[in-house]
């Protein structure tokens, strides 16, 4: 749709990647663990290895949940921006196709929240 405006429209993208000081925003959701209410947001360098996301970044927040210590990462199922995918742990976020404001979701088979309540 064309812009309906009185005067010229300023082309302002508030969250362009350049505004994040070398980082990009990545959202992470642990499915079936709704105590987290929403996916969590992180500013991360695109060159960060995927394994650093999993073993360094994710625990800072998700270890809040008592099931976290039972997570077997070898069995985790990943979804990137709506598509199932198998991350290469050694490669960077960018090389794994993680973009600025990508949404990464993971499921942990067998772990479905406290007492199986999906929370």
């Amino acid at each position: 749709m064309t812009v309906i405006a009185k005067d010229g429209y300023v082309d302002l993208v508030q969250d362009k990647v350049d505004n994040f000081h070398g980082n990009q925003v990545v959202y992470v959701s642990w499915d079936d663990h709704l105590l987290f209410c929403a996916a969590q947001a992180f500013p991360l360098p695109p060159e960060m290895p995927f394994k650093a996301l999993v073993f360094e970044v994710i625990p800072t927040v998700f270890s809040w949940h008592k099931e976290f210590e039972q997570v077997d990462w070898a069995k985790a199922q990943w979804n990137l921006d709506g598509n199932d995918f198998v991350p290469d742990m050694e490669k960077s976020l960018a090389e794994n196709g993680v973009e600025h404001k990508s949404l990464i979701r993971f499921k942990t088979p067998g772990l479905t929240g406290i007492d199986g309540t999906r929370m």
Binding site: F36, C37, A38, A39, Q40, A41, F42, T60, W64, L103
Partner: peptide, 21 residues
């Protein structure tokens, strides 16, 4: 009990954390 120590993903339009199911 601990509070959640991170920032949630927000909806681009209503700006509420993306909590709706």
């Amino acid at each position: 009990f601990e509070y959640l120590a991170s920032l949630p993903q927000l909806c681009q339009v209503c700006q509420i954390p993306m909590i709706f199911t």
